[in-house]
Write a protein that binds this DNA or RNA. Structure first.
Length: 298
DNA sequence: CAGGCAATAT
DNA sequence: AATATTGCCT
């Protein structure tokens, strides 16, 4: 039973989440202040190679852990501090939330780079997710590697792979809950095979170099959790990223179809049963976390 | 300096 | 719990 590495990705396409599930990852979901915190402009590209936390005019994120701070509602945080505006530099980025989609992107990048080239910086570049830092990737990569190691031992007995549907992956090491994020994405076969320099992938993806030069293209935006967001968060409905023809292309092609993409048209489709993904994690003591997507199925 | 990895912090 | 950060090597 070896599907050949030339097929592993074919199945992916069938397992790809429905358009509705993939769309939500875009800047539109980032609220204005969130965007500010990242210094994300709607028409500017700037990401990787990030010098120190910028210095321009961001200050939305307040400062430090404060317990009772909420005041501004996601709309009025600008230039408020007329006086003590502390240096926006040294601003802490909010925690990155690794949504299944984001992770998928990560896995795709690693898969295409090959284990040897899959180092944080390269992965980060290939992913082209704005707001993503090398540290983010490094940290995630570390965890992912541990996950893979655990998997190798159990893949023989469990074989949860091959899933049939987005659900899959419920069992792995006994604590599915521990790595359900990782389980949400199929793991390319070669990842589990040490000592097998596979290079059969022939995916038509473009070289990394191109990634840094596109002029216009809304990349995927990193989902982020605000240290303490006001409880009311509303998610804009503009769905971008949905291919005009309703068909999804290869992940890597998808981002490269630069001039072909026309986002002016309201492609957003009403997704039934789509709930706000605002999750209140009171297990943490009232800490709010903004999650972008449904965790699949729970 | 970038990477990997374990430990630790938040 | 999920990420981030740090320390210590390579």
């Amino acid at each position: 039973m070896r599907e050949d590495d030339s097929n592993w990705f074919s199945r992916w396409e069938e397992e790809l989440p429905s358009p509705e599930e993939l769309t939500p990852l875009s800047q539109t979901l980032i609220t204005p202040d969130l965007a500010l915190a990242f210094d994300i402009r709607n028409s500017h590209h700037q990401q990787q190679s990030q010098p120190p936390p910028q210095s321009g005019g961001l200050q939305s994120t307040p400062s430090q852990p404060n317990s009772g701070e909420f005041a501004a509602d996601s709309a009025e945080l600008e230039s408020g501090s007329g006086a003590g505006d502390e240096p926006a530099r040294t601003l802490k980025r909010p925690r990155l939330v690794w949504t299944p989609q984001l992770h998928k992107r990560f896995v795709d990048a690693v898969a295409h780079l090959g284990i040897k080239n899959a180092v944080p910086k390269t992965i980060m570049q290939l992913m082209s997710v704005d707001g993503l830092t090398r540290e983010n990737v490094a940290s995630h990569l570390q965890k992912y590697r541990l996950y893979l190691k655990r998997m190798q031992g159990l893949s023989a007995s469990g074989g949860n792979n091959g899933g049939g549907g987005g659900g899959a992956a419920g069992l792995a090491s006994g604590d599915p809950a521990t790595d359900r994020l990782f389980a949400s994405s199929p793991v390319p076969a070669h990842f589990l095979h040490p000592g097998r320099p596979n290079s059969d992938h022939f995916l038509p993806f473009v070289p990394v170099a191109a990634v840094q030069h596109h002029h216009h293209q809304q990349h995927m935006a990193a989902a982020v959790a605000h240290p303490q967001l006001p409880a009311q968060y509303h998610r804009p409905m503009g769905h971008f990223g949905s291919p005009p023809n309703g068909q999804f292309e290869h992940p890597f092609l998808a981002r490269q179809t630069q001039s072909v993409h026309r986002m002016g048209a309201p492609v957003h489709s009403q997704v039934p049963g789509y709930m706000e993904d605002l999750e209140l994690d009171n297990a943490n003591g009232g800490r709010k976390v903004l999650t972008l997507f449904p965790t699949g199925a729970d």
